[in-house]
Design a protein around this nucleic acid. Structure first.
Lengths: 233, 233
DNA sequence: GGCAGAAGTTGAACGCGTTCAAGATGGCCG
DNA sequence: CGGCCATCTTGAACGCGTTCAACTTCTGCC
């Protein structure tokens, strides 16, 4: 009874006609605007539908759930982030400057959605949710983000332990996730604390990465690399 | 209109009579059992009330929301964890052994609730939620947990950089939070990966803590300490 | 043009967490 | 004993996310 390879029309899939695409976009824009204005929890599906001038069920034709509307936010943010990071990556060659630029760019992009992102985060945090940053469904944006950090490293003049180097992009992505986590919880005005976290953590990461080749630290470096390998299967 | 210092009777507060206490316990036991049996999402408040033989509203008299029932789970787990860690703390004096023992004890205690803990985690993750591990309402169990890691350090023979030492318990607690985070997402049978994470990370932490006094690492150590101080205000 | 079927659309209905006005209980004091 | 009041209990009702059978619109084909 379960549709295993069903050629289902939509609900997560893309619309097949121009009309569908238009409706989908309309609902999406309306939802995003309302999320930003009133927050996620206080924006009801009924309100979104009414504002967009469609029936409630129609929204569910294009988006499997209210949470799936957030998925779209996730994708957009990722694209915006990559774009915002571009100038820095084209200009700088110093590892710390590149990393700092990319992290600050992320917060720049996220800034207008801080309040809304909090509720969004709750949803993403559930491991069983398809929106989890570690889930299969979010693989595309996640890999794009990891690629961004691979570029941070590749375009830099940093000298890195050769064993650590291939693992570093994912570690940097993890640090990025940590930064976002901190940002979500950051209640300071303008999320100034997060800026301080970045400014403090980047030189530290920079130094540790540089030290990773040191004789005394090689065992520790190797330990880190082995641990990552073990956990990845 | 808002009750700012209201001497409200309950809904988060303690019952005032023996009868109340009894009802509260009954609801709590029923809820915990059902959460473990069916999971959080599929256990409805109506079902809890019916099983406990009370009205729905009665449950809300003692617990502000379905989420508040989880708060209780949080408290119990913390108590169990402290108890489970006791033997190790009384026996071992080696830092790595103590840390490993305390972390494994935590997973031991959490193990039976893995599925349920996932949904619980979703709730705890929301920054605005009173159940967030960083919120004021959870200060008591959090401080108890930090105290546990202070004891891990205090009772050990580890030599630590004197500047780092006072910050270390909270850092260890953070590592513990990270471990729990990993555990929540861990889908491997019996959460074996989390065990590997602990077994891999503990020697690493042990080594880094030991190295923190080294000449070459002092600047990095100081950087870490400064960063923590900055972020704490 | 007509028609089959895919694509898109509708809104009433379901079960959920939560609220609250109303009622029941029980201990304390005159 | 009688009445008062804090405490406790009730369950109908509300708004929410979500579902789905029925309906309409559009496209390709003869």
């Amino acid at each position: 009874m379960t549709d295993q390879s069903a050629p289902t029309t939509a609900a997560g899939g893309e619309p097949a006609t121009a009309r569908g695409e238009q409706t989908r976009q309309l609902i999406l824009e309306t939802a995003m605007r309302m999320f930003r204005e009133r927050g996620y929890a206080r924006t009801t599906m009924r309100a979104i539908a009414q504002e967009a001038g469609v029936a409630v069920g129609n929204a569910y034709y294009y988006f499997g759930s209210k949470e799936h509307l957030i998925q779209e936010f996730y994708l957009r943010t990722q694209r915006e982030h990559a774009a915002a990071a571009r100038p820095v990556l084209d200009r700088e060659s110093d590892f710390a400057a590149r990393l700092s630029g990319v992290l600050h760019a992320a917060i720049d992009v996220l800034a207008p959605s801080h309040e809304f992102a909090a509720s969004f985060f709750k949803v993403a945090a559930e491991p069983t949710s398809p929106l989890s940053p570690f889930s299969a469904e979010t693989a595309a944006p996640r890999e794009a983000a990891v690629a961004l950090f691979a570029e941070v490293l590749a375009g830099s003049t940093a000298k890195v332990d050769p064993e650590l180097r291939p693992q570093l992009p994912e570690l940097l992505w993890l640090a990025y996730m940590g930064t976002v986590l901190y940002w979500v919880y950051d209640r300071s005005p303008g999320q100034a604390r997060t800026r301080k976290l970045i400014d403090g953590a980047v030189p530290l990461i920079d130094r540790l990465v540089g030290l990773s080749r040191l004789r005394v630290l090689r065992p520790a470096t190797r330990q880190v690399v082995d641990l990552i390998r073990t956990l990845r299967h």
